[in-house]
């Protein structure tokens, strides 16, 4: 089972003078259990793409298959709920969508819409809060508007997790979080991924991508320009720079060292591995010099 996009085109305001082609001939296959990263600068079509993954937008041309369900067909209307159930979508700044009186009610909004019983809803809320390390007992009766920014964000994401989606799509989930909140959140996301959830994340941070994504796509002008593992992608720094993107900071360091004549590998993204590699290369050079 997978998410599939076949030659998808999407045009905003078709036929009017302001029409813009947000997606052009997108072909993409997302397998179950994957951690896919999507990068690209503002206006490259990332957000449009992910809204196709749960049927919020329907392609102008082409097909989107969600576990085999074609969202473009008329009959799919009845299956819309099923699709929304499978794919959880977390928008940018999701904390702006909180509205209930208490944290518990807000997280329970999705499950209640699914028509679950009160006890089931409560179970789901507890589970979702536990996944994001939110304390159920102390927070459940609080107003979501009294929480800190980072906690609001977590509550909003818990609201999506409580629907128990098979695929979780996040649009820049760490934007505006402090460095520690960011790190914590991504770690929790990695845990969810290890537990078997498929994760699709849009991000501007190449460092995060290098660390967490298994596969990446790079978007520009509504098209997929590059596709592959982070190693593949970041070994083409010229192409990335042409699109206006950069490589992770560690890769930048290794590339500069190589330019200066130090013989290092440039396909490492883990800080420990990079440290060992630099030390090794320096030791090798020292060795050469002393000989």
């Amino acid at each position: 089972m997978s998410l599939e996009m076949k030659h998808v085109f999407y045009t905003y305001q078709e036929g009017s003078p302001t029409e813009s082609h947000a997606l052009q001939d997108i072909c993409l296959n997302i397998n179950e259990g994957e951690f896919l990263g999507i990068v690209g600068h503002t206006g490259s079509g990332k957000s449009t793409l992910i809204q196709h993954l749960n049927g919020l937008l329907k392609p102008t041309k082409g097909e989107v298959l969600i576990d085999g369900i074609n969202i473009n067909q008329k009959e799919a209307k009845a299956k819309r709920k099923e699709v929304r159930l499978k794919v959880g979508l977390v928008f940018q700044y999701p904390e702006y969508q909180l509205f209930e009186e208490t944290v518990e009610q807000d997280i329970g909004f999705g499950p209640r819409n699914l028509g679950l019983s009160d006890t089931e809803v409560q179970e789901r809320v507890k589970e979702a809060m536990a996944l994001l390390k939110l304390d159920y007992k102390t927070l459940r009766k609080q107003s979501p508007f009294d929480l800190s920014g980072g906690q609001k964000r977590k509550v909003a994401i818990a609201g999506v997790l409580a629907m128990k989606p098979k695929y979780l799509v996040l649009d820049e989930p760490t934007a505006g979080l402090d460095p520690r909140g960011r790190e914590e959140f991504l770690e929790q996301l990695a845990v969810l991924h290890r537990q078997g959830m498929t994760i699709i994340m849009v991000s501007h941070s190449m460092d995060d991508m290098a660390k967490y994504a298994q596969r990446m796509i790079v978007m520009d002008h509504g098209q997929i320009q590059l596709q592959g593992t982070p190693q593949d992608i970041f070994s083409q720094p010229e192409q990335l720079q042409q699109i206006g993107l950069d490589v992770p900071s560690l890769s930048r360091l290794l590339l500069r060292l190589k330019q200066r004549g130090l013989d290092v590998r440039t396909d490492l993204f883990d800080i420990e591995a990079v440290k060992t590699e630099i030390l090794r290369a320096m030791a090798a050079r020292e060795g050469k010099l002393t000989c």
């Binding site: 749960n54 709920k81 159930l85 979508l89 969508q97 909004f109 999705g110 819409n113 629907m163």
Partner: peptide, 8 residues
């Protein structure tokens, strides 16, 4: 959109 993603 965000609320319909939560089943509204």
């Amino acid at each position: 959109k965000a609320q319909s993603a939560r089943g509204a």
